[in-house]
Write a protein that binds this DNA or RNA. Structure first.
Length: 589
DNA sequence: GAGTTTGAAACT
DNA sequence: CAGTTTCAAACTC
C-alpha cells in the first residue's frame, strides 16, 4: 500500500548520524586505555560507524530542507543512490565540507535562516488533515491491515546521536504517514528508510508533504525537532548517565519533562528513562522512581530493565511526581545537597520485598539510599560497567561516622604503638647522640605550647589537630613525640587545599622532603617508625576487614540490618577500650 | 506474534 | 489550558 516507500533492500540500516564527539571520545578512550573493555567496545563501534558511513546512504536530513535545493537532486546521485549530504563517505580523507554539520545544527540554522517557515501553519495543517480525515484514515488503515501483515519490528545497527550510541530503529507507523511526531524518524528529522511504516510520506518522494508537516509541527511547537534533553553542566557524579552501549554521558534533563503516571518512570515509556536521564523538576510524573537517590532508577538506568515489575509491584518509594511542584523541587534540591527526604528512607513495602530481592539500608539518617537491589545481574551491571563510577555496596551502609571512627581508632592505635615503643625510644634518647634531637623535639613542643605563630595547624579527620612547627622536626605534639616520616607524608597527603594554601612554603617543603633530622637521631628512630607504622597499618587492615565483613552481613541479611547496624560498631571498636577511645577523643579535642 | 499498556502528540 | 482522542512504542503473554 505504501507506494512511496522504497522496497526494503537487503541492507536496511545505516548510520544516520555521526557525531564526531562520540568518535573523538571513542578514539581518546582507545588511545588512553587501549586494553580497557570500554575502549575496545568504543573502538569497535567507531570502526562500525565509519564502516557504515562508508557503506550506507545518508539518512540524516533536514526537517526543513532548503527550498532552493531540490531534495531529489540534493539527495540522489547519478546512479540513483542517495549521497551522503551531511557526512561524506570521504570524510576520513577529505576535509569537512561547510555543510557537514550535525543534524541539530542544520536544523537550528535552517530555522534561523528560513523564518518564513514559522509563518502560521493553520492552513497547512488543515490541508494535511483535509487530505485524509481520521475516519478515512481508519478505513484506510483497516484496508492496510487486511492487505499487509505486520512485519517484525526491526532494531539494528547503531547510530551516533548527541554523543551517544543508540540502536537504530525503524518506525512502524501506520496512520500518521510518518508525518507527525508520533513517528520516530520524523521526530528525529530523518527520512524513513527501511522502516516498516505504511503509507509513508516521510521520504524524498513526498518532500512537499513532509515539509508542510514539518511546518505544521513547528507551528505547534517551535522546538519540536530540537533535542528534548538539555545538557546540564552541573550534574553530580551520580547523575552521570549511561547509555545503552554503556557509555556515560553528562546529559542533563528533559526539557519538557515527562508526564508518566503508571510506569514509575522506570520503563521506556518514560522519555527521561529512555534517554537514560533522571527525572527533573520539569517532570510532572507520578510516583517517580527515576530520580536521584532512587536505587531502582540507578540500577535500571544501568541496564537492569528486567526487574521493573518487581519494583512496580511493591509500591512507591519516592513519589516525586505526586508532590506539588515546589515541594518536588525542594526535594530534588535536598537530594542534590545530600539530604534525603524522609519518605525515601521509610518504605515498608519495599523493605518487605527487599527481604527477598532487595537490600535495604537502615532507615536512619546515615544512609541516603533507601534500598539497594542486588540481583546478580544488577551487581554485574554495576560492577561490570567499565565506565560507570564504581560504588561499593557498602557505600550505602558505611557512612561518615564510620570513617571518623576509623580515623579516631587509627590515632588511638598509633598512640598505643608509640607507647609500646616508648621504651625503645627512651633507650635511644638516653644516647648521648640524641641530645640534639631531643632538644629539637623539646623546642618544637615548646613552640606548640607557646602557640607560636610559626606553628601550623594540621587538620586531619575533622577532629585531630596536630601542630607542626616550621623549621623543626615533625612532632606529634599531642603526645610529645616525633611523627614518623611516613606519617608526616600521609598527613601531607591528607591536608586539604586550605592547609596547603595557608601554610608557609617552608612547611610544604617540609612535607615533601624528609624531615630535617639529625642523621644519628634518624637512624635510631627508623626501626621504631617502621614498627609503629606496621602496627598502625595492621590495625587499619583489621578495621577494614571488619567493616567489610559486617557490611557484607548486612548486605546478605537486610532484615536484621538495623540490629547489625548497631552491632557492627562493635567490631570496629574491637580491641579498643571504650574509655580509652573516649579519652583519646577528649585528648584530641 | 497478537494483544495490552503506556504516555506523548494531536486534537477539541 | 484541561480533557479527550489518536498514535506508536513498549511491554506482556
Amino acid at each position: 500500500m505504501d507506494n512511496n516507500k522504497p522496497e526494503p533492500g537487503p541492507v536496511k540500516t545505516a548510520a544516520r548520524q555521526l557525531d564526531f564527539t562520540a568518535i573523538c571520545r571513542a578514539s581518546a578512550a582507545s588511545a588512553i586505555l587501549p586494553d580497557h573493555p570500554q575502549a575496545q567496545l568504543q573502538s569497535k563501534l567507531l570502526a562500525l560507524a565509519l564502516k557504515r558511513q562508508v557503506e550506507s546512504e545518508p539518512k540524516v536530513i533536514d526537517p526543513v530542507p532548503d527550498p532552493n535545493v531540490d531534495p531529489k537532486v540534493k539527495q540522489k546521485g547519478v546512479d540513483g543512490a542517495v549521497q551522503n549530504t551531511n557526512l561524506s563517505v570521504d570524510s576520513k580523507t577529505e576535509p569537512p565540507k561547510p555543510q557537514q554539520h550535525s543534524h541539530a545544527e542544520l536544523l537550528r540554522s535552517r530555522q534561523h535562516i528560513q523564518p518564513e517557515l514559522a509563518r502560521p501553519r493553520q492552513h497547512i495543517h488543515a490541508e494535511l488533515k483535509k487530505t485524509e480525515s481520521p475516519k478515512q484514515r481508519q478505513h484506510h488503515n483497516v484496508e492496510l491491515k487486511k492487505t499487509e501483515s505486520s512485519r517484525p519490528r526491526q532494531q539494528s545497527s547503531v547510530e551516533f546521536k548527541d554523543g551517544t550510541l543508540k540502536k537504530q530503529k525503524q518506525c512502524n507507523c501506520k496512520n500518521s504517514r510518518c508525518l507527525k511526531l508520533y513517528c520516530e524518524c520524523f521526530a528525529a528529522g530523518i527520512y524513513c528508510n527501511g522502516c516498516n511504516c505504511t503509507n509513508c510520506h516521510n521520504n524524498v518522494e513526498n518532500e512537499s508533504a513532509r515539509r508542510e508537516a514539518v511546518g505544521a509541527t513547528l507551528e505547534r511547537n517551535p522546538n519540536a525537532f530540537r533535542s528534548k534533553i538539555a545538557k546540564s553542566p552541573h550534574r553530580s557524579q551520580d547523575n552521570r548517565i549511561q547509555n545503552e552501549a554503556g557509555e556515560i554521558s553528562n546529559l542533563g534533563k528533559h526539557n519538557k519533562g515527562c508526564n508518566c503516571k503508571k510506569s514509575y518512570c522506570l520503563k521506556k515509556y518514560c522519555e527521561c528513562f529512555q534517554a537514560n536521564i533522571m527525572c527533573s523538576e520539569n517532570c510532572r510524573c507520578i510516583d517517580c522512581k527515576n530520580c536521584e537517590g532512587s536505587e531502582e532508577g540507578r540500577v535500571l538506568r544501568q541496564g537492569e530493565h528486567t526487574n521493573v515489575m518487581a519494583f512496580m509491584q511493591h509500591g512507591s518509594v519516592q513519589p516525586f511526581g505526586s508532590m506539588p511542584q515546589e515541594i518536588k523541587k525542594r526535594k530534588i534540591q535536598n537530594l542534590f545537597m545530600g539530604q534525603a527526604p524522609t519518605h525515601i528512607l521509610d518504605n515498608r513495602s519495599v523493605q518487605k520485598h527487599n527481604q527477598e530481592t532487595y537490600l535495604t539500608s537502615p532507615s536512619n539518617s546515615r544512609s541516603h539510599l533507601p534500598s539497594i537491589p542486588l540481583h546478580a545481574a544488577a551487581k554485574e551491571t554495576i560492577l561490570g560497567s567499565s565506565d560507570s563510577i564504581y560504588r561499593s555496596q557498602l557505600a550505602a551502609i558505611r557512612g561518615l561516622k564510620d570513617a571518623k571512627e576509623l580515623c579516631s581508632r587509627l590515632v588511638v592505635v598509633s598512640a598505643e604503638a608509640s607507647r609500646k615503643l616508648a621504651g625503645k625510644k627512651h633507650t635511644i634518647n638516653e644516647d648521648a647522640e640524641m641530645d640534639q634531637c631531643e632538644a629539637s623535639v623539646a623546642s618544637s613542643n615548646q613552640v606548640h605550647k607557646d602557640k607560636l605563630e610559626s606553628g601550623v595547624q594540621v587538620l586531619s579527620g575533622g577532629n585531630i589537630v596536630h601542630t607542626v612547627a616550621t623549621g623543626s622536626d615533625p612532632v606529634d605534639v599531642q603526645h610529645d613525640r616525633a611523627m614518623s616520616p611516613g606519617t608526616l607524608e600521609l598527613m601531607c597527603d591528607e591536608q586539604d587545599r586550605t592547609f596547603l594554601e595557608a601554610q608557609s612554603p617552608s612547611v610544604v617543603a617540609g612535607c615533601s622532603k624528609q624531615p630535617k633530622m639529625n642523621s644519628s637521631c634518624t637512624e635510631g628512630f627508623t626501626d621504631i617508625y617502621a614498627e609503629q607504622e606496621r602496627l598502625v597499618l595492621t590495625n587499619f587492615l583489621n578495621c577494614l576487614n571488619k567493616l567489610v565483613t559486617s557490611g557484607s552481613i548486612q548486605v546478605m541479611h537486610p532484615s536484621s540490618s538495623q540490629t547489625e547496624r548497631e552491632g557492627q560498631q562493635e567490631p570496629l571498636q574491637n580491641g579498643i577500650k571504650d574509655n580509652e577511645l573516649q579519652r583519646s577523643r577528649d585528648h584530641l579535642r
